[in-house]
Design a protein around this nucleic acid. Structure first.
Lengths: 215, 215
DNA sequence: CAATACAAAACGAACGTACGGTTTGTCTAT
DNA sequence: ATAGACAAACCGTACGTTCGTTTTGTATTG
């Protein structure tokens, strides 16, 4: 072993790049299968087929199916998907602006984070981890960190509202829970219309609550 | 087949009673396994073990596992669990009374309908039906009817609020979706405290929105 | 700059296991 | 006696894993 420290991305050997690309392709296949077939029906064969690799290649990159699922979950819980910061014009009509922003952010979360392959795959993993002890233990801290990261970003954006931090955390958690729950009945109205209407209705009521003084 | 019409429960032969009790026991075992092990890990062996029956008994009462699941789903979607009617004192302070009632009903729904074995089993079936076409087709209409029945009961109780029927339906659907979503992360805080706090926070905001005039 | 040596990558067959379904047998109540 | 209620053994299948082989990229020689 030479001293090619991993902190120096200088010399990414071609093989390492290839291996990393393969792992990425496999993880994408896992997420795709979770969305299409659900956690239970996501078999090695299905992943193999979706990724375009052989059975042996999968076991070469991941020692077990469980490991594949955990790494896929880690990818879904990567904090890379953060809301963009908003710059608020300091001063007048702050409440109205705030409400509009909250509504827009919620709709954006629904369309870009939840109502996607990744969002549905995450739902499958979360529901599976409800009854799978080892899976739950392995993703619990990542999930908590992910929730906190989202909350912090949102609180940073909306901290000037009248609510304290605790209440804000709870409100955004409610929002996340609602959007995730909406994915549990997406199969019953193939047209997005109804769900999107619900999102808007929720966002509107939610924003109204947030931009009002606490009682 | 004699002409013992099912509309005449007059002569329930002892054997029929026994068979019905066995079916009920099996269905309870299914729901229990769905809650404990999840949809994927609910196998015939597990159900057999939980119900205290042999493999043969299960296949005697239900032709297939899918049929068992569908009938279990039908049991979970039975309209028997309806909110009790509330009698409102016609007259003063109706808005405040309304808000209190809404909050109480939501907490009641969470504790008695959603945060239960049956509620979690229903979550498992709904998530499974997202990717299982035959299961979805077989429970779709029952699920829709169940949602409508709940909505109608609630609208009957709260019809005097300022909202129109469409908005009320959407609001209660939002409530149901949120409570179901809360079950998808119940495994991460074994203490009910946090979830119950979220329910209360949601119920409070929800009630405030409902007892306010529309904009 | 070849030629060789070695490790990683990809492959596919084989294995044991657990599942759902089926069949056969036994007992009980009518 | 006859049909239903339950039990137990059996069958084919699909799963996840293991393992030996082949291929490909990289490093080390002359």
């Amino acid at each position: 072993m030479h001293e090619t420290a991993s902190s120096q991305p200088r010399k990414e050997s071609k093989k390492e790049l290839q291996a990393e690309a393969a792992r990425e392709r496999i993880l994408s296949a896992v997420i795709d299968c979770l969305d299409r077939y659900g956690y239970a029906e996501t078999s090695i064969s299905r992943i193999q087929e979706a990724a375009g690799f052989s059975r042996g290649a999968l076991t070469h990159h991941f020692p077990s199916k469980e490991e594949m699922m955990v790494v896929a979950a880690e990818r879904l819980l990567r904090p890379t998907l953060s809301l963009r910061r908003r710059k608020h014009p300091a001063g007048a009509a702050s409440e109205a602006v705030l409400a509009v922003d909250v509504e827009a952010d919620i709709v954006w979360m629904w369309e870009k984070l939840v109502d996607t392959s990744e969002g549905r795959a995450l739902l499958e993993i979360l529901v599976a981890s409800r009854t799978d002890d080892v899976l739950r233990q392995r993703i619990a801290t990542k999930f908590a960190r992910w929730n906190n990261a989202i909350n912090e970003t949102l609180i940073e954006n909306y901290g000037q509202s009248g609510m304290d931090g605790q209440a804000l955390q709870e409100f955004w958690t409610i929002c996340r829970v609602f959007l995730r729950g909406l994915n549990t009945q997406s199969q019953f109205d193939p047209d997005d219309g109804m769900r999107k209407a619900l999102v808007r209705r929720f966002a509107h009521a939610f924003a109204a609550q947030m931009s009002r003084p606490r009682d």
